[in-house]
């Protein structure tokens, strides 16, 4: 495992920790899109179908469990915790995420490496992960006061896939059997590109020492 991949995973982990910290300590999920969180839970379920059958390393298995468990605990907090659920801005979270699921499923059925259940579900998870942040980005744009934890959460999440892209370039150059991953690369590129606008305003607010606010 190269440094880009490891740093990417750590950024991903950090984003989840930051979000859980906000929810657990502040007892608030203000500004967080439940729809994006639902999509991520679905992404992890579909991608990690092999969690008990396809052992790669202890690291991989533990990370998979952590991502699945954190995704479901976030969903539980936002939907069932009696204090946290009242801080959820349902009216601001209006993205039609079922259309994303449908579109990604159709695309996965049409464009995949192999037509098997496992492979199509895996491909679906790759497509869905690329666009899962959209409800959250739309919600951020509507939120006048984005708190630091929410801003950092989205920033770490964007950095994660950006580092994965460097990892792909590194692996492409250093590994012999690493040339067939175009499907992941295109999706990963789109996923990272979706954050470009957010990154711009995040860095700008950080440099000017101002509160993060996205233009409507």
């Amino acid at each position: 495992m190269n440094i880009f991949r490891f740093a990417g995973d750590m950024m991903h982990l950090l984003s989840v920790v930051v979000l859980l910290l906000k929810i657990h300590k502040m007892k608030s999920c203000a500004g967080i899109s439940l729809k994006t969180q639902e999509l991520y839970a679905l992404v992890f379920i579909c991608r990690y179908l092999d969690i008990f059958t396809g052992f790669i390393s202890l690291y991989n298995t533990i990370m998979k469990i952590v991502f699945l468990a954190s995704a479901f605990s976030i969903l539980w907090y936002m939907r069932s915790h009696k204090v946290v659920r009242q801080t959820y801005d349902k009216d601001q979270d209006t993205f039609r995420h079922y259309f994303l699921i449908l579109a990604c499923m159709v695309l996965a059925l049409l464009v995949h490496h192999k037509f098997t259940f496992r492979e199509v579900m895996w491909t679906f998870s790759i497509y869905l992960e690329a666009v899962a942040i959209l409800p959250q980005l739309v919600m951020l744009q509507r939120t006048r006061n984005i708190d630091n934890l929410t801003g950092n959460y989205v920033f770490f999440l964007g950095t994660y896939r950006g580092l994965y892209m460097l990892n792909w370039v590194y692996r492409y150059l250093t590994e012999v059997h690493y040339h067939h991953r175009w499907l992941t690369w295109i999706s990963g590129f789109i996923q990272t590109a979706l954050y470009a606008d957010f990154f711009y305003y995040y860095v700008k607010s950080w440099r000017n020492n101002e509160k993060l606010q996205l233009p409507a």
């Binding site: 998979k64 490496h113 992941t184």
Partner: peptide, 10 residues
Amino acid sequence: ISEADAKDEL
């Protein structure tokens, strides 16, 4: 290329 090789990323 083996199946496992392609799925070693998270």
